[in-house]
């Protein structure tokens, strides 16, 4: 199984080496009703990287990931992965949703959840077989949950649930991973284990986008950052982008007029 994994990586490697950008988010605007959540966001990634998406609450961080993955409709703009539509690149995309997005009382075991990561490579009606199960166990091993394979997911701690989701994403054998707050509500040890894993992925030439809201750890964890507050304030290498000035623009009161504007938009569309 290990060999098939590494061969999978090498066959996909030339795609990364070519000039096509890994991710191209072009002029993306998203609104709930008339209230803009993302405004004209442009983001292009050409090199594999570990990118942190940071910004205050309600800045549209999760929405950006959902917009890229086609989970929320775009008002305008387009998204490409490896130069092609997201729909055609599903197999090279991995996803870690927010932990609260599912029912943890659902009757499935930890292994079952990780196996779901392999469903993308299985066709209709096809059940996961011995190969998939062995691979899922290997993924569980990578996140240090081998001993929990047969537990019901509801019996796990928050950190373990998060690692289960991570293992599921690993099972997808993707090239680009999108992770929505993987550090939310996990203990310090789990957080360290996760970041080590993410760096390993990055060394294997994968790209990982992480929604993150801890400003203290952001510059340590990520080599690239995207600073978001409805619009993209700045994006680039952490060293040159994660500056006081950009932080102030992202978190500061400079966007009061934008706020007022979205209020004006809302009130006009509601009451007229």
């Amino acid at each position: 199984m290990q060999s098939s994994l590494s061969s999978a990586v090498t066959t996909k490697a030339p795609k990364l080496a070519s000039r096509i950008s890994i991710l191209d988010v072009h002029d993306v605007t998203v609104a709930y009703h008339r209230k803009p959540v993302l405004w004209d966001v442009d983001l292009t990634l050409t090199e594999p990287c570990l990118l942190g998406i940071i910004g205050p609450n309600g800045a549209g961080k999760s929405t950006l990931i959902k917009a890229i993955l086609g989970l929320v409709p775009l008002v305008s703009g387009s998204v490409q992965v490896f130069g092609q539509s997201v729909a055609s690149q599903r197999k090279s995309i991995g996803y870690v949703p927010q932990r609260e997005s599912v029912d943890w009382d659902f009757p499935v075991s930890v292994l079952d959840v990780v196996l779901m990561g392999t469903y993308g490579s299985l066709g209709w009606f096809q059940r996961p077989g011995a190969t998939e199960k062995a691979w899922a166990r290997q993924c569980l091993d990578m996140v240090g949950l081998s001993d929990f394979a047969d537990r019901q997911i509801g019996q796990l701690s928050g950190g373990q649930q998060q690692r289960t989701f991570l293992a599921r994403a690993l099972a997808q054998q993707a090239d680009v991973y999108f992770m929505d707050e993987p550090f939310a509500g996990v203990d310090a040890a789990t957080e360290q284990a996760i970041i080590v894993l993410l760096r390993k992925l990055r060394e294997q030439g994968k790209t990982v986008l992480v929604v993150h809201h801890d400003l203290r750890t952001a510059p340590i964890y990520f080599d690239q950052v995207a600073m978001l507050n409805v619009r993209l304030v700045a994006a680039g290498p952490t060293a040159s982008t994660f500056t006081d000035e950009n932080l102030h623009k992202t978190y500061g009161g400079r966007l009061a007029i934008l706020d007022r504007l979205s209020q004006a938009v809302e009130s006009q569309t509601r009451t007229r």
Partner: peptide, 19 residues
């Protein structure tokens, strides 16, 4: 469709991302 039903009932967003 057991596999598909299980996946969609548990995590529809993930199912969508998987195509």
């Amino acid at each position: 469709l057991f596999k598909e039903f299980k996946l969609v009932a548990f995590d529809p967003a993930f199912a969508h991302v998987q195509g």
